[in-house]
């Protein structure tokens, strides 16, 4: 299967090399593409130095915009599977082939940290539970780890995510695709590591705003959107 790992990178000069090395060492039969999201550090320089394939965005578009750039590339080059992969070393390449295997019989695969393990009790996990609840209410689908950033999309989904507005790589998009495009979503158990270097986007306040946004978006805004077939006409 033709698979592309999309690796959005914003100021990841310290971790990008070890992330790519770990992918290479795994001996995966996949292509990868770094999307440098207008980094202020020397991420682009590192990519050039080691001849990594990468898209160099001239300005910072944010995660959604950077990921969509990668999706557009996947769509134009006819990839059958696109996997969202973090540049900071949190995602482990040994789980990529599990996602690849599962995508053969589904539309979206989510690498879940909490299928085999119990969720720890923390404010962030409370938010994660709220999002799970919102998705359960609106779609009837139970997702144990909706905020996991490790997701695989098949060819049909790649088209939607590459061309549409409001298809950021977030849980509300997943809930919309379940409802409106009859997407089949499967979770597979994965483990994640701590980030190697750099700083996370999320501090307590932005996490709170993010959770609130997702909750309102899933419960209310996704319901008024057109169904996929209608939107395509």
């Amino acid at each position: 299967m033709k698979t592309l790992l999309i690796i959005p990178a914003y100021n990841e000069e310290d971790s990008i090399e070890s992330t790519i090395n770990s992918i290479m060492n795994e001996g995966l039969d996949v292509d990868y593409l770094i999307v440098n999201d207008g980094s202020k550090d020397s991420t682009a320089k590192v990519c050039r130095k080691f001849h990594y394939p990468f898209l160099d965005l001239s300005t910072n578009l944010g995660l959604a915009g950077a990921f969509q750039a990668g999706m557009k590339y996947a769509y134009r080059h006819g990839y059958e599977c696109a996997i969202q992969f973090d540049a900071d070393g949190q995602h482990l390449p040994e789980y990529v082939h599990i996602l690849e295997e599962a995508i053969k019989s589904s539309d979206i695969v989510i690498g879940s940290r909490f299928l085999t393990q119990k969720k720890p009790i923390s404010p962030r996990m409370l938010g994660s539970n709220l999002i799970s609840l919102a998705i359960k209410i609106t779609t009837g689908k139970k997702l144990s780890d909706p905020t996991s950033g490790m997701r695989a999309f098949n060819k049909r989904m790649i088209k939607y995510l590459a061309l549409g507005l409001n298809f950021g790589p977030e849980p509300d998009t997943v809930s919309y695709l379940i409802k409106s495009a009859n997407a089949k979503v499967v979770e597979v158990p994965v483990k994640m590591a701590e980030r190697v270097a750099g700083e996370s986007y999320l501090n307590p306040w932005t996490s709170f705003v993010y959770m609130l946004r997702m909750f309102v978006s899933i419960l209310f805004m996704q319901l008024v959107r057109k169904r996929m077939e209608e939107a395509e006409k």
Partner: peptide, 20 residues
Amino acid sequence: IAKKVRNSKVKLEDSIFWFC
């Protein structure tokens, strides 16, 4: 807002303020 979201005229992030 519902109409604008439905017709993909506005980004969801922006519509959420007006909804609230």
